[in-house]
């Protein structure tokens, strides 16, 4: 395609092509410090395209395509091309990745051990992971966490963090402005601004980490912790995985092992500070 870029996030090598220069330039800035291997073949292809030639210039709208597509996905205006690229990359992984068990979860790590936070959008899992990533933890990813069926380890997928709405100001107050992408206001998902993970998180992205805590955060309400059983954690994580069924017995083995070896809790929290405190508290008990 006319404009293109190659990006490696965790174990995945992407190739992203675009009919416009802008989304590729925005990606180039966000992923400038990620490791590059120009000779490595791509695992996944993303296409950002105009579905009619004149739509490149006239009210340009960005369609999201690639190896895997969602048939009725609505296009985005060119001003949100970066969001289109992010959605396209997520889509390829969600529908196409088969090497690891894919959890729709954020994760952070410390001392070679990781906390996995799984929850629907609005649970605050992204914001918590981003904030912990600025407070002494290694950010592994804000959207996907990969479980290696062979070892049971968690693998990082540290794409640029997608901060939404209130989280933007909360995180922006703590980081260098050079680590923030452009503000994408009024997208279908609200306001969005990307955060470039810290250099050490990117440098460590290939290091596997043993999971020691499974958390299911819920934003809102008084701080609360509740232990949940292996069966419930199993059910919740099958629902949070886009490739559990496609992996067959490898996925079954990875997930039964994960919920048996890793204590799981739901946590409720009214604000980020108390959420982070709950994570620290449970971490201290888990590694004791």
């Amino acid at each position: 395609m006319r404009h293109n870029i190659r990006i490696a996030v965790g174990p995945v090598q992407f190739r992203i092509g675009s009919d416009w220069a802008e989304p590729v330039a925005a990606l180039a800035r966000l992923y400038a410090a990620y490791p590059q291997d120009e000779t490595r073949p791509a695992d996944a292809t993303v296409r950002l395209y105009a579905n009619r030639p004149w739509r490149r210039w006239l009210r340009p709208s960005v369609h999201i395509g690639g190896d895997y597509i969602v048939p009725d996905a609505l296009p985005l205006p060119l001003s949100m091309g970066l969001l289109a690229a992010e959605m396209g990359m997520n889509l390829q992984i969600a529908l196409g990745w088969r090497r690891h068990l894919l959890l729709h979860a954020s994760a952070v790590a410390r001392d070679g051990r990781s906390v996995i936070l799984s929850g629907a959008s609005g649970s605050g899992k992204s914001t918590l992971a981003a904030l912990l990533g600025e407070a002494g933890w290694r950010l592994m990813g804000d959207e996907f966490t990969l479980i290696d069926p062979a070892s049971g380890d968690a693998l990082a997928f540290p794409r640029a963090v997608s901060l939404k709405n209130e989280a933007i100001a909360e995180v922006a107050a703590r980081v260098d402005a050079a680590r923030l992408g452009p503000l994408l206001a009024g997208t279908p998902k609200g306001d969005i601004r990307h955060l470039i993970p810290r250099a050490d998180a990117v440098a460590a992205m290939h290091e596997p980490v043993r999971p020691v805590l499974l958390l299911f955060p819920q934003f809102g309400g008084a701080p609360a912790i509740e232990r949940i059983g292996e069966g419930e954690a199993f059910v919740r994580l099958t629902e949070a995985s886009t490739n559990y069924i496609a992996l067959g017995e490898a996925g079954f083995a990875a997930l039964t092992r994960l919920v048996r070896e890793t204590p799981a809790f739901t946590i409720a929290y009214p604000d980020s500070a108390s959420g982070m405190a709950l994570v620290e508290q449970l971490w201290a008990e888990a590694v004791r």
């Binding site: 190739r15 000779t39 490595r40 073949p41 791509a42 695992d43 292809t45 190896d67 895997y68 196409g96």
Partner: peptide, 14 residues
């Protein structure tokens, strides 16, 4: 060539 695989894999998937 290593990069020829990009297209071969995308076309094979399609």
């Amino acid at each position: 060539a290593p990069r020829e695989w990009d297209g071969v894999i995308a076309v094979a998937r399609a």
